[in-house]
Write a protein that binds this DNA or RNA. Structure first.
Lengths: 110, 110
DNA sequence: GGAGACTAGGTCGTAGCGCTACCTAGGTAG
DNA sequence: CTACCTAGGTAGCGCTACGACCTAGTCTCC
């Protein structure tokens, strides 16, 4: 109940974050993992990220296409859909509201 | 995948929030549920809250004592421990960092 | 030409936790 | 007696992050 806090916090946040990164620029799994780490969310394991991407695809929030890499294995590029953008918009505003509520509670217990 | 976002977001956040409220002023379960709702986290069901309180108690982050209510059933009052305060401090700073990272990602995908 | 590292994607089992539904029990109002 | 509010608790379910593992292509170095 100390080190795994981040794991719990990722729940429900990871999918919108991935969606936001894909919305900015089409990308593939491995690169997204690096972007998320660079953004401060910590290292996201493959066993975590790939199921997320499959879920987003299954829900029709992103589309995927295989492309040969110039070097290394082929990459699966993801692009956001209109529905994905809509979902992202709602998730973002919901999250802002939620995190503000949490911040207000945690601020008081200083 | 719309209304249950909040449920996912509560993960790992609920315990620190309860801890923060108890740190501010000793309280009991039913009242804490109302405080959390009032703070904007939405209604927290008994089946969600009471296990959280039992976990906090089992980890030694709070202590509990039964007290007769002037009206209605007896109440179980919770008070934060020194270890609880320490945990709360770490959780709060960790959460600030984490939520800032999420905010930065969601901001970009505007 | 073999070993090892890096890139890239995927699957499987486990564990934690919020949720719904349900239960006990005291007090009060009609 | 019935209904509702307060107050606490338990049981099973479902979702999801995680670690462990697997396949495969490319590159460097010895």
């Amino acid at each position: 109940m100390d080190q795994d806090r981040r794991g719990q916090w990722l729940r429900g946040v990871l999918a919108p974050c991935v969606l936001a990164l894909v919305a900015e620029r089409e990308s593939y799994g491995y690169e997204l993992a690096q972007s998320l780490d660079a953004a401060g969310l910590g290292p996201i394991q493959g066993g975590t990220l790939y199921p997320v991407l499959l879920r987003l695809q299954r829900f029709g929030l992103v589309t995927a296409s295989w492309r040969e890499g110039t070097a290394g294995p082929a990459r699966k590029y993801y692009r956001i859909t209109a529905e994905g953008r809509e979902t992202l918009r709602h998730a973002t505003s919901d999250w802002r509201e939620f995190s503000a509520g949490v911040a207000s509670i945690l601020r008081e217990g200083r």
